[in-house]
Amino acid sequence: MALLEPSTITILVLTGIFSSSIIFLISAGLQIVFGIQRILNLTVGSFYAIGAYVGITFINFFLKMGFSVVYGLLFLILAGLSLSFLGPTIERGVLNFVYKKEEAFQLLATFGLVLIFEDMIKLIWGSYPQISDFGILTYGEFRFLDTSFPVYYFLVIISAFLIAFLLEFFIKKTRQGKKMRSVADDIEMSEGLGVKVRNIYILSFTIGTVLGTLAGALIIPVTAAVLGMGIEAIVLAFAVVVIAGLGSMRGALLASLIVGLLQAFITFIFPELTTFVIYLIVIAVLLIKPTGLMGKEI
């Protein structure tokens, strides 16, 4: 195809990997909560949206205070982390009441939360798209072949990998992480061994929350914050976790790459077919290997 010159391909691959990083953070948020609580937490899309809005508010505030734009990334990360309080609030306030209910109700409870957050955003920030004063070229450009990319892309990609690595380390090596895994394997036995399941639930949900808010905060130099962005994100992240296999972190990394790259290429070639192709893959995966690429047995 004439359109796909080497430079175009490079651009598409790089933007693909960039969106993969964002999608990975969101789907990692889904995975961790599903891995521990066995709940498919649609709310993570809302956390992503809130992260974006709060990120913009944060950064515009700091820039107005006279801080240099160089600290922009730091402020965004701060914005994402500052929203961690949502984790325990929602977990104790809502999820706590649905753990014993059927799966369908748990899913619907998070759907209810999505509706609530959707309007809360509208209530606070209004219906107009919000734009940050933090330009994407703040950190300059990187030249490669005939093209150039914002350095910011690389910073986000590196951050995502760093977070993936930290998560892996946390879950595999630390005491809390080991407790989390034991709760995921067998709740009753873990309780018997003195693990406070309640605390583990709060912890895993909070991690899931922060992954979402961070992803939202990090995306804002690239796009505006708009209503409905949370729902769009959840639709993609949901595709990722199904392809990955529910609960699998490494699967999420791989599937995010697949979805992110596909999204970049298909959007370029047949713009309107993106969701269609991604969901065809979802269906194909569910049919061929219902547990996903790297999921455990149902």
Binding site: E103, A104, L107, A239, E272, T275, F276, I283, L286, I298
Partner: peptide
């Protein structure tokens, strides 16, 4: 119907979305 519980919900959701994009396209 090969699947139940959450997998059934997810699969039906996916089919709904595919149909939605077909309608648009």
């Amino acid at each position: 119907v090969k699947y139940t519980r959450i997998y059934f919900a997810l699969l039906t959701l996916a089919f709904g979305m595919v149909f939605y994009t077909l309608l648009i396209k």
